[in-house]
């Protein structure tokens, strides 16, 4: 009867006993089973998004019953510095949303900041 070994030795022996399995064509077999890459062209996606944005804006304008037109006329009477501040504020808001979205989509940054989303 052999003496009982400790946990560390057992784990080491288990790791060393696990053989590296040679590929021997395995990757090629997997690649042969993958579905063909199907992806719509980027320009098509961009055109669809642009078209939807224009359509949505048009519908909103028609449904507003002149509200937007009056708003634009009023806005044009504002001093230029106020319009610049307004544009800058809009840019900040959109930029802030873009940064939040980018962090949510980037695991490295998320880990770095240790934020839970």
């Amino acid at each position: 009867m052999n003496p009982m070994i400790d946990d560390e030795t057992l784990d080491r022996q288990l790791r060393e006993a696990a053989p590296y399995i040679d590929d021997e064509g395995f990757t090629a077999r997997v690649m042969a089973t993958l579905p063909a890459a199907q992806r719509e062209p980027r320009w098509l996606r961009a055109m669809v998004l642009l078209g939807l944005a224009i359509l949505g804006s048009g519908i909103a304008y028609v449904l507003s019953g002149g509200f937007i037109r009056e708003g634009v006329i009023q806005l044009s009477n504002f001093p230029i510095w106020l319009l610049l501040v307004f544009a800058f504020g809009c840019g900040l808001v959109v930029g802030a949303f873009a940064v939040i979205f980018a962090i949510r989509k980037t695991p490295e940054v998320r880990d770095l900041t240790r934020l839970e989303f």
Partner: peptide, 30 residues
């Protein structure tokens, strides 16, 4: 691995996925 996954996601890069398979096939099959 993260770079390769990003390539698969961005361009449906099957070569990048192949590299991931090559890297992990031994442990998964084991």
């Amino acid at each position: 691995d993260a770079d390769l996954i990003a390539r698969v996601l961005a361009n449906d890069d099957q070569h990048a996925f192949g590299e991931l398979v090559r890297r992990h096939q031994s442990s998964v099959r084991g």
